[in-house]
Nucleic acid binder design. Structure first.
Lengths: 132, 132
DNA sequence: CTGTATCCGCTGAGATACTG
DNA sequence: CAGTATCTCAGCGGATACAG
């Protein structure tokens, strides 16, 4: 958070529901797969196995868990079609779509400043160590 | 990320340096203490022990580690004054300040949609389980 | 096809004690 | 004051196997 005042967090209180909630959202953004899945679903609904193919690096377990969390938070809707074999479609909710603007802004900041960050890291690493 | 195209991530490649970098930034934002520390430093430089007092819940170890990471990424500058006892001031860099806009946007999104999220979670939890 | 259940190693993070 | 060094434990996340 930048200005805590702007958020109604004048004096930091880690116990307040508001702070907990904000922190929760930030952690969801920081989690390994959530943002990527939301980004993919932003282009349209996908079936479970489509997502697996589009994200080869994810394990089945983590795909399931991540989708469950997103569903629980109301960002993604899950629609089961009980055919045989079964079919499950995942789709971004309105809330899920609304998350995209701020997240995209952050991602663009990241892309824009990647060189600067890499340079700072390189400088730090060479300056401060010869770690063994 | 919302539109991967907008980021130059047309087809997802987890190995690409760009994707790694964006992911790294998102994880820094999601990390437990980084954003809070950046928010506090946004109001002005602080000494190590001032930060400890302003964030009672953080351990000395995590404060040190978090500040080191932020310094490594070029978001925070560390200034040692070798008096006795020593004095160390932490301050946001220009890059650190520039991170605030997108992060604040995200935090404001979170605050705005907190009720909606809580409601979705409650619905999910009551609908899907009586976990024992 | 779409999951759930298990096992398991790695890392994150707290508590505590010690140092310049 | 401002750290570093250990120890420890819990939880994330991968691999694999099984189920509806």
């Amino acid at each position: 958070m930048a200005g805590l005042p702007e958020l109604g967090l004048e004096q930091f209180d880690p116990e307040s529901a508001r702070c907990q909630g904000v922190s929760g959202v930030l952690q969801r953004v920081g989690d390994k797969w959530s943002v990527l899945i939301v980004a993919i679903l932003a282009a349209g609904p996908r079936r479970f196995s489509q997502l697996r193919r589009e994200i080869p690096a994810i394990s089945q377990r983590m795909l399931t868990l991540t989708l469950r969390s997103l569903e629980r938070d109301g960002l993604v809707s899950r629609t089961v079609t009980p055919t045989i074999p079964p079919r499950v479609d995942y789709e971004l909710t309105t809330l899920g779509h609304s998350l995209q603007q701020p997240v995209l802004a952050l991602a663009q900041w990241a892309v824009a400043h990647l060189p600067e960050i890499a340079e700072a890291q390189a400088r730090f690493d060479t300056t401060r160590e010869r770690p063994r």
